[in-house]
Design a protein around this nucleic acid. Structure first.
Lengths: 337, 337
DNA sequence: TACTCTAGTGGTAACGATAACATAGGCTGT
DNA sequence: ACAGCCTATGTTATCGTTACCACTAGAGTA
């Protein structure tokens, strides 16, 4: 019984076909020089033999993979999932594969992950955010592949970036509330110090409030990022207890905002009449819930698509390379009008 | 300027340290025989030289990777994300990495993906569901690595499975509605023929209704899977229009159920007094929304964790190998009581 | 007719790590 | 004191593919 015999290689196919291994190799490369009939016959023989192309050997020999490494804070987040989806779909056209890792909103974990991903010799690496541990930063600076930071505009970009100003986006929301006549505005976010983007939104909130000459001290920390709907609801209960005269609240994400919304409903607080609510991220929930949720669209999927196109441009060298600044869009819905 | 010099290899480190490449290699393997001081010195030298371990070469030489290939229908689905999270976290303890691909609920796409993933010589492959194209099935049958089907109990398992009966789970929901006194019960799902698990839930609904001697013809097709909240809402509107005397509805997922819930609110239909609603998947939304949502917990994360442990058991050979049957749990909440 | 030129194919070496085996010392026990 | 063993290290060959170069036959060109 030779059921455990070694899987066939290109050399086996070559032997069967009476051609050189080189020709077999070429038959598997779309754009290389083999006569159409030879290629067809080889591919058929390969299929018959149950041959499976060995990407590892191929990558090893050619010293380049078809991987793009990607780190995101959490796999279970619709925004980042959209970004990864945009990336994967756009890169799939070039037969490139995403190598995904998630950091759990932890820079230390990100460092480990980056190191592990770089071992695969990816063609490019995409990270979320513009803040990293010193060692992670050094790793990214010394690696000679394109590095793209996303979901942020880094103070000092390592390579390229595709992102937007989180602080600026929150400013839009604050401006909207202020122009609607609100003065006593609060912010619900995660505990300080973990989630970088969350912190920037918080900082942006404070700056925007102060720019309007308003008090920016109504800050509720709802727990370790990412904030769940439940935590958003709890934070809302706390906010109403501590600052009952608050008129509007900016939430670090739509999930928190939705939690806040349900808490208002439970407490019988009418939204938006008594309390205006704004979220972040344009999650599906925001356009379906009652009342619909004012939010900020950060164009998560577009970030992924544009990142992918940037990577392809860089690899093609030739095309003009430019960083991409996304302009988030305020979407005013029923929760604030 | 030698900024573009080739990255250092183990041989370079060996030269610098005055040891053999083999010793350097061993220094990077946790459990191998090198004196503590030699290892430390080598790792330090490696760090100084900016050495990055080449997993590709390592995998190639040893003819085994540390990948586990995983296909899921969609990356943007909290249930599958949880499963992947459970897998990744459990496998991370053994330094194994997930190689993720998504099929977009398309068996043809799944076939392409499986072929591509197998080229990486993964240690195991995890697929979602128990239905595949003939070619995909053959690929999985002939590959000599563990194959695990999840989220289903396949009629003819290819290798192992970690799953549950989708039909049986829906039966629990129907039984619950019936014992609550409902007779005119509807089902909201996706268009027939694409999403396998959705189809099974639909079939399960029909079977369960007929077992109770009830009419099972109130079936609303809400669009191409996966059904969004919006589509769930639209389907609900249609249901109320076509069958205004319906008493309860089983939805293919919590997202659809939530959409249905909001539609009821918009229409002023009281839930659960006038209309009971049940979902599937125990998404976070279901325990936060008002009223909270009756659902079925399929233990998505546990599926991932148990799949990972199964894989580790198989690879360790020695441990007893058993397929895992998950028992979904009906969670009764306010939308049906 | 002689002469490029191109498409199609073959031969050889190499990518970087490590499996398998070999070896040099130091230590144990009788 | 010496066989026997264990620890730490070295040597050699190799995984499967493809980069690089060489070659041939026939078409096109002067």
């Amino acid at each position: 019984m030779s059921n455990i015999r070694k899987p066939p290689t290109m050399a086996d196919i070559a032997r069967v076909m009476g051609v050189s291994p080189m020709t077999v190799s070429r038959a598997f490369k779309a754009d290389s020089l083999v006569s159409a009939e030879t290629r067809e016959a080889i591919l058929k023989a390969a299929e018959d033999l149950g041959y499976v192309f060995d990407s590892t050997a191929s990558n090893f020999r050619s010293q380049k993979s078809d991987f793009v490494a990607v780190t995101i804070p959490s796999i279970n987040n619709a925004n980042f999932a959209d970004t990864v989806g945009g990336l994967a779909d756009t890169l799939a056209a070039r037969n490139m594969q995403i190598l995904l890792g998630y950091t759990n909103y932890d820079m230390q974990e990100e460092e480990r992950l980056i190191e592990q991903l770089l071992r695969r010799k990816p063609q490019a690496i995409v990270v979320t955010g513009g803040k990293h541990t010193p060692r992670a930063r050094r790793l990214l600076e010394t690696v000679n592949i394109p590095v793209i930071e996303t979901w942020d505009i880094p103070a000092e970009p390592i390579g390229h970036y595709v992102g937007f100003s989180n602080a600026g986006a929150v400013r839009q929301m604050v401006d909207h509330f202020v122009s609607a006549g609100h003065r006593r505005i609060a912010f619900i976010g995660g505990d300080v110090g973990r989630d970088t983007r969350g912190s920037e939104r918080r900082t942006g909130f404070i700056a925007a409030m102060e720019a309007h000459g308003l008090d920016a001290s109504r800050l509720i920390a709802a727990g370790a990022p990412p904030i769940s709907m439940r935590e958003g609801a709890n934070a809302m209960a706390r906010l109403i207890e501590i600052h009952p005269d608050t008129q509007a609240v900016v939430c670090v994400s739509d999930l928190a905002a939705y939690g806040a919304l349900t808490e208002c409903r439970r407490l019988g607080v009418p939204v938006p009449e008594r309390f205006a609510i704004g979220g972040f991220g344009n999650y599906e929930i925001g356009e379906v819930c009652v009342p619909t949720l004012t939010t900020i669209n950060a164009f998560a999927r577009e970030i992924g698509e544009k990142t992918a196109r940037l990577i392809l441009d860089i690899l093609d060298e030739g095309a003009a390379i430019e960083d991409v600044r996304i302009t988030p869009e305020l979407i005013v819905r029923d929760s604030s009008r």
